[in-house]
């Protein structure tokens, strides 16, 4: 052979456009069902809500099927600015965000406590995780009862400590208390903290399971090496173990932030935002103004939702940015 032979491309008929581009088309065929479905119920409604927040609308349509919404521009936002309930809700959201973060270190400590291999450990680990599996509605009911000053656990413990049992002339037993039992959920000052404490219970369980998985994968050789260098206790935890738990910490923070801003169920169950709106958060306040209070105020509700969405977007952007860094580094 004195010259290179070009591969013979014309021996078979030219494959069709579809065949030639199959690697470009195929992903879209796989994606389309999810994409359409997700757009209808998630992506498009987000923009509709943003748009609706500039309208005044009670959710009704006229006889021709046209929406009765009236354009009001930024009026809803102006109203929000002077709405004390909105500010209370926002303040409570911040309290939730800050205090809910306690779930991360507390989850880590329970995980450290449980990271042993004695018999029956698997059982204990799953029982500690238990609160996360049950619905927040049930958690809310449990704690609503737990906090009850008359016959809940708090009330009963209070009686045991501060009250004396006496029998009156008629022979009935009564309690004489040096201080009345606290009614946590009826106190405007304490109710929010009571709900947050209840919310922490399942959230700690979630963080715990993240850390247990993380601890399982901590490099044993590094621990041993640090031990030979004399590291132990807090120093070991802070300088050797915690850095290795970074991925678990990141996820724990993400789910805790999302959980804090999404808190709705427990508030709806335990106090419905009361007493006097003192336990409202944006997610619950939005629901309240949009559908349950004085008829339907879709536009105003949407403006509350938009504010909440804006706060969330701040965190989401950060999370996505972190994920993007990982993707770039990963491959």
């Amino acid at each position: 052979m004195t010259h290179a032979v070009l591969p013979d491309t014309n021996s078979r008929p030219e494959p069709g456009w579809l065949k030639r581009n199959k690697l470009a088309i195929a992903p879209w065929i796989f994606l389309i069902p999810a994409l359409i479905f997700f757009s209808i119920y998630v992506v498009i409604p987000i923009f509709e809500s943003l748009w609706l927040s500039l309208y005044k609308w009670n959710g009704l349509y006229d006889v021709d099927g046209n929406s009765t919404a009236v354009w009001v521009g930024f009026e809803n936002y102006a109203k929000l600015w002077y709405d004390p309930n909105f500010w209370t809700s926002l303040r409570n959201n911040i309290a939730w965000l800050i205090l809910y973060m306690l779930a991360v270190p507390l989850g880590l400590f329970i995980a450290l406590f449980l990271n042993q291999t004695v018999t029956g450990m698997r059982f204990y680990k799953s029982m500690f995780f238990f609160p996360f599996v049950i619905s927040q509605v049930v958690v809310g009911l449990i704690f609503g009862w737990f906090y009850n000053p008359d016959f809940g656990v708090v009330g009963t413990l209070w009686k045991a400590v501060f009250c004396e049992e006496t029998t009156n002339i008629l022979g009935n037993t009564t309690f004489v208390c040096s201080r009345p039992a606290p009614d946590i959920l009826s106190s405007p000052e304490w109710a929010t903290y009571g709900i947050i404490a209840a919310g922490l219970w399942p959230q700690i369980a979630y963080c715990m399971i993240l850390y247990l998985t993380g601890l399982n994968n901590v490099a044993a050789d590094q621990i041993e090496a640090a031990r030979l260098d004399g590291a132990k206790g807090w120093k070991m935890l802070w300088y050797v173990v915690v850095p290795q738990l970074k991925p678990a910490t990141f996820i724990a923070v993400v789910v805790t932030v999302i959980g804090a801003l999404r808190s709705f169920d427990m508030i709806a169950i335990m106090t419905q935002g009361g007493p006097f709106g003192s336990t409202n958060v944006l997610s619950h306040y939005m629901f309240e103004v949009a559908i349950s209070e004085y008829g339907e105020r879709y536009g105003y509700g949407s403006s509350v939702a938009t504010v909440l969405f804006g706060i969330m977007l701040f965190f989401i952007s950060y999370f996505l940015w972190r994920m993007y860094q990982d993707e770039k580094g990963g491959r």
């Binding site: 801003l261 999404r262 939005m286 509700g301």
Partner: peptide, 29 residues
Amino acid sequence: IYRFRVALPLFFLFVAGNFIPFQILMVPV
């Protein structure tokens, strides 16, 4: 599996959608 330009943005769309507050969807849905 496929390497195409919008794969990562689309992926992030699904991720972000998963984190948004329900309330922003409530009225339209």
